[in-house]
Amino acid sequence: MKKLMGMLAMAGAVALVLTGCAAGDAGSASGGGADGSPIKVGFSQVGAESGWRSANTASLKDALSDANGFKMTFSDAQQKQENQIAAIRSFITQGVGAIVFAPVVETGWDDVLKEAKDANIPVILQDRAVDSDPSLYTTRVGDDFEKEGETAGKYVADTFNGKKANLVVLEGTTGSSAANDRTTGFNKAIAGTDINVLDSLTGNFTRAEGKTVMEGFLQKYGKTINVLFAQNDDMGLGALDAIKAAGLTPGKDIQIVTIDATKDGLTALSTGEFNYVVECNPLLGDKVADVVKKVVAGESVDKLYVADDQAFDQAQATVALPTRKY
């Protein structure tokens, strides 16, 4: 027993020395970059909840590749904030040169962002936003969710110009900036029209929940629903099945407006099952890589980079579909 204790103590001491070394190394190298060595980047992604997300992940993995002078550690948070906080903490201990992360929800990041700041590691928000003090992160590369919602709302307002219409909404993940801002933008655009929002519930950005919630809407309101606003393509695609099962024709009996413009979404648009899709560009990788390089080199960067988002109607979708990458 004594022997064992001794061995444990020894092992402990060795471990202490080792971690001490590791921390020292990270401190002096500060994640690399300046002298041409690869820039260590920690990337914490929300999850793989939708086709959009998969495209976004692929874009970042491509841009932050070894060939482009990066050494990226990827962490999938599986849509849980605690996983993401743990990942960011581990990036801090690893002493990465920069942290890139797509916050799963808007709130609750102050502590971990402060820790990163204290460790002098720049944080680049990718995709979604946070409500923390802007001094706690370096910059954000993302899409303008409010504008996306507004574009979608404008289409609905114009289509039913002056006419009465009943609308249901499939919201995104409760508390995410994508869901909050899209709702705000959409409501702004339809304010003052005769469009009546019957109901608005979350489908968590997934197909399965989009389908279940739409089934509920159809049972509850039946044929009185004229328009569905799904805050991403996947929920809209899930809702398609529910609408067909109810004996209604999607795109005709119920108009469908979604956001994202993934390949699956544009396919549904070109076959007339969706009516309007607002793009939310997931190909943010190159911009993020560019910003990370600038930040690590000590150059100043803007506080926000907004991606260019288009919108598609059915005819435009048919044209755009063959070249769609995601």
């Binding site: 999850g47 793989a48 909840e49 999938d76 599986q78 849509q79 968590n204 997934t206 197909r207 399965a208 389908k211 695609l237 899930g238 099945d241």
Partner: peptide, 14 residues
């Protein structure tokens, strides 16, 4: 049944 319901395999949420 779950994957057939949405014609998709969603490793994170299924």
């Amino acid at each position: 049944i779950y994957s057939s319901n949405i014609s998709a395999a969603d490793a994170n949420n299924a």
